[in-house]
Design a protein around this nucleic acid. Sequence first.
DNA 1: TCAATAATATGAGATATCTCATATTATTGT
DNA 2: ACAATAATATGAGATATCTCATATTATTGA
Lengths: 223, 223
Amino acid sequence: MEIYKNEKRQRYIEEFSIGHLFSFAIEEFIEVREYKRNEWIIQEGMRPDFLFYVIEGKAKIYVTHQNGKVSLINFINANDYIGEMELLNQIYYTKGIQTSTKTICFAIPFHRCRKQMLDDAKFLRELTKFLSLKATQMAAKYSQSLAFPLENRLADFILQTADGEVYKEKHVTVCDFLGVSYRHLLYVLTQFCDKGYLQKEGRHYRIQKHSALNELAGKLMNK
Amino acid sequence: MEIYKNEKRQRYIEEFSIGHLFSFAIEEFIEVREYKRNEWIIQEGMRPDFLFYVIEGKAKIYVTHQNGKVSLINFINANDYIGEMELLNQIYYTKGIQTSTKTICFAIPFHRCRKQMLDDAKFLRELTKFLSLKATQMAAKYSQSLAFPLENRLADFILQTADGEVYKEKHVTVCDFLGVSYRHLLYVLTQFCDKGYLQKEGRHYRIQKHSALNELAGKLMNK
DNA sequence: TCAATAATATGAGATATCTCATATTATTGT
DNA sequence: ACAATAATATGAGATATCTCATATTATTGA
């Protein structure tokens, strides 16, 4: 992890201004940090001392269960907060956050800003929206995971993450995210190929029948 | 649904004051409502016009999937909000809320109070805590549901809902909540009886081996 | 109080998903 | 450039969970 100083810091703070998210001058407190690919921004179980706001890059929220299984709870992208749970709650089991690309974020120290942030309606209003979205997404994922087999959830995931017509997510990541075994994921992908929905091209898959995947994915949605 | 008027209304507003949750005078806007057992406070898919704050009673959040399965997303108790998602988000698929006992709540009309509420740091701070808890719970439930078989989740649920040493939840409700079929729930309950963890007493179950259930449930927690 | 409805109960057979074992093929750090 | 590590791939057998069918027993509204 690298902390940007002086001009470089200043450049980022100006280019990606987050002044509009606060009603007080936050700039002076901001630390600009760059994390390398696969670096851990927060270690599971360790309370962070900063509220992070992601400027660029991607990361993943992980939790490890006692039985050794790992769940990829969600992805984090630009304009997401990290550490907001710890800002709000004294008691909280901290999840691990690992970057999947080089990631730059603003780090705001709790000890200097907590009070002001928790009194700032503008900041809190943004945060409630962020949290309500997060809660809604989790509720949707939860109920869908119980109500539908992998077939439907995978179709949705493929459509959401495909780069044009090409699906190229790593299987290992997808297992953790969709909560199924590697073996089973491969079975269902093979089925999709057999049915002609996908076509394997080396390590990638090309979408052949958009409509069929759409139909499978559509079943997840309410109305 | 019945709306309390005059002295009755006044009595409730005083006895269960929520003045401390707002920094402006909310009392005059509050409507006090009583819903009967099994009544729907909000119909699935229909936007509410009020933010509700539950004073007494219990309710359930339901969502219906296209394949006909119903998920009981969560339980609602005293001091919970209802309709906060719709307060914050213009676009939101509204879940159904059904009472399971007589339920009394304060209803605060969006059209008269939205602006003030969204500018009130005190209110927003409480709401962020509520939402962060909700998001955390859903994330935990989600990842647990994928990482553990029913055995563990049911043990946890039994311990959490048991009345003293007696478990007496309705199977039909529990299926929707834990996302398993009625048949499978009964299988696992029978197993628990066979192993001597529970003993059936008419329609209820008496907990016999607290320790065994504790151990099963404990596997859900991180550390 | 009675008929309708909801909840409980259980069997039998299907299937979605898991575990484990074992290769092969990339990727990565030094 | 190579050894270590991570990712992909596939088979075989187990099990967690589902669907459907069919009874029996509460609960409830008129």
